[in-house]
Design a protein around this nucleic acid. Structure first.
Lengths: 113, 113
DNA sequence: CTAACGTACAACCCTATGGTTGTAGATCAG
DNA sequence: CTGATCTACAACCATAGGGTTGTACGTTAG
């Protein structure tokens, strides 16, 4: 899911990072971010069954990283950059916690001769 | 793992995102980024066994998000911001793929009256 | 109309994962 | 020294994950 919600829930983040924790799925994201494709054309890229790729796309869709759109008999898959942006900002905020802390420590050390 | 390597492998990213795909582990990261703690003090925070928390810390350590350091009889766990930074930049690069593409499309549309 | 295509989904298999309990080794407090 | 504390790790269990094959259905091409 992860709709137009301002504050993703824990489950949203779970789905997001779990979706990214697979090389095939990351590659699918890469592909459809560059250019939307049908599921079968995606399936042609990987050494696994159509159904397997279909499942990967479903995982990405539930994570909000990708959206499917019917076009006649095929399903067009395109990337959804917003969620990626939110994730990147979350990781940055984690990172900054540490940096702020070390900065604060350095300040303290400078105060003491 | 994910040592001082310049280019994390697919398996590195797998471990990283899988480590982040769990609310308890994300909270541990949050905690130890703010302040390094012993495993048992971490274990006190969550409604699960010591061994479970120990496993979570191990997952985070293998992902390079956290480092353990012996201090007497206890193990001090502290955060490792570098990997978070790399992950954030990866996600941003994915995101930018899409944005660049739409920007390119808009350019094309402007050229055609 | 019919055949081929693109998709959806169920059933199944094996392995990985997250949790538990239990045991054992170091280390510190008194 | 002794007991309490912190950690490590093995064994086990239930469930979720990633893969497969097979079947069914709507859509398009000829």
């Amino acid at each position: 899911m992860l709709g137009p919600d301002e504050h993703p829930s824990n489950e949203d983040w779970d789905r997001l990072f779990h979706a990214l924790a697979d090389a095939t799925r990351r590659d699918i994201v890469l592909q459809v971010m560059q250019q939307g494709q049908s599921i079968s054309s995606l399936a042609g890229r990987y050494a696994m069954s159509f159904a397997a790729v279909q499942k990967h796309v479903a995982v990405l869709e539930r994570a909000g990283l990708v959206r499917k759109e019917r076009r006649g008999r095929e399903q067009h898959v395109h990337g959804e950059p917003v969620v990626l942006h939110k994730a990147a900002r979350l990781l940055e905020s984690y990172e900054l916690l540490q940096r702020h802390r070390t900065a604060a420590i350095e300040e303290l050390l400078e105060e003491e001769p």
